[in-house]
Amino acid sequence: MSFLLVLLVIAFPLLALSFAIVNQGTVAVVTIFGKYQRIMTPGLNFKIPFVEAIFKKISIQSRSIELEFQAITADQANVNFKAMLVYAVMNQEEETIKNVAFKFMDERSFMQALIRTIEGTIRALVATKRQAEVLGLRSEIVIQVKEHIDNTLETWGYHLIDLQLNDIAFDEAIMRSMAQIVASNNLKAAAENEGQALLITKTKAAEAEGNAIRIAAEAEKVAAQLRGQGVALFREEVAKGMAESAKVMKDNQLDASLILFSMWTEAIKHFAEQGKGNVIFLDGSTEGMEKNMKQLTALQQLKEVK
């Protein structure tokens, strides 16, 4: 009975040491006397007590780290970066797990190498760019860093899932100068737009004025033509009327100068009606009337001779 009890006391610890539980999302690297032996997958696993030992448990889940560092551009401007890196073990193949387990002495050494590699890659790229180019190269920086880092991580058994540059900021003095440049460029653009708008307004106004002058000139030209035609028609009708009147008086053996006298009296009547208060001096004496009649008769005879 005592022997059985002793056997149970010895067997129970040995039995407990013969099994190991590996959590989901994790694999365990097993060594024998310090040498790699095999990999334990998630679940309950058997191992040889006092011979096999779990060297390291490795998470195969995605992990993330946040970085803050500074870089210097080609024109000596300091740029502050905030980045987030998401990475994971590349796969669960044996060689990959061995790289992850034995490539670095510990997790701290791996993280230090990872951070320094990312910072160095970004700094090397930023050092070839001017400060005005950096803000517009966010996507280019991410692409180039991903390509470089992914190749390096694969040799360590990891792969890069995502890299995000959450913030890119310059020193306060540079930010102020950049803000002033942006403000001055905006003012310049606004002035140019205002000048173009004023030019368009002035041009349209000049075109409108030119069109108005041209239309007015055309109208005046047409009006002058119509006035001239009206005067010509009036004179033609007057001439026809006078010719017919002269013929009638001649047929009746009357002096044609009576027509001129009638026109003279009608003109005086028109002066009186349309004068609007203006004073018109006419020689109303008998000598003056005879003088005017002689002049009108002479003009009529001269016209007949022509």
Rank of each mutant, 00 (worst) to 15 (best):
L14E: 06
K47S: 00
A11G: 05
A169S: 06
E119T: 05
Q300N: 06
R227Y: 03
I141K: 00
M40Y: 02
E68N: 12
T26Q: 13
Y87R: 03
I268Q: 14
T117K: 08
N252M: 02
L299Q: 07
Q274V: 04
L44N: 13
L8M: 09
E95M: 02
Q300M: 09
L163P: 10
E218K: 11
A71T: 07
F50R: 10
R116T: 00
A267P: 05
A208I: 11
E287T: 07
Q274E: 08
L260F: 15
T121D: 06
T203L: 10
Q229D: 12
T203H: 14
D251A: 11
V100T: 04
G241Y: 15
K82Q: 11
I215M: 10
L258C: 13
G195M: 08
V27W: 02
I259G: 15
D255N: 15
I149Y: 07
L44C: 12
M249Y: 10
K47L: 06
M84T: 15
Y87F: 15
V86Q: 12
E107G: 10
Q92W: 10
I268N: 14
K306Q: 08
S177E: 14
E133C: 00
E244W: 13
E94G: 02
N193E: 15
M1N: 08
A53C: 12
N45P: 05
K188W: 06
Q70S: 02
Q180M: 06
L233Y: 00
I213Q: 15
I149M: 09
K247S: 08
F81V: 12
R38Y: 11
V29F: 15
F102W: 07
P49L: 02
L85T: 10
K306Y: 08
T96D: 03
F50E: 00
V222Q: 10
T155E: 02
K291W: 01
N292D: 01
A243G: 11
A77R: 01
N185H: 14
R176E: 04
I149K: 01
M111T: 10
K240S: 12
A298T: 05
T155A: 01
A101R: 12
I141V: 05
F281H: 11
V6T: 08
F271H: 14
G277Q: 07
Q295N: 03
Q229W: 00
G288T: 00
R123V: 00
F261T: 06
I161M: 13
V51M: 09
T203A: 09
L67D: 07
G136N: 04
R130E: 01
L258Y: 15
F19R: 11
K303S: 04
G241N: 15
I72A: 01
F19Q: 13
G284K: 07
K188S: 13
V126L: 03
D171S: 06
N23S: 06
F110P: 00
V89R: 07
A189G: 02
S64I: 04
L199W: 14
I213G: 11
V222H: 06
M1V: 09
A232M: 03
F12S: 06
K303L: 00
L8E: 04
M111Q: 15
M175E: 05
D162V: 04
I141S: 01
V30K: 04
A224C: 00
N99H: 09
K202C: 01
A190C: 02
K221N: 04
M289Q: 09
L153H: 05
E266H: 09
F81A: 13
I149W: 13
I97N: 03
F110A: 02
F12A: 11
G25I: 03
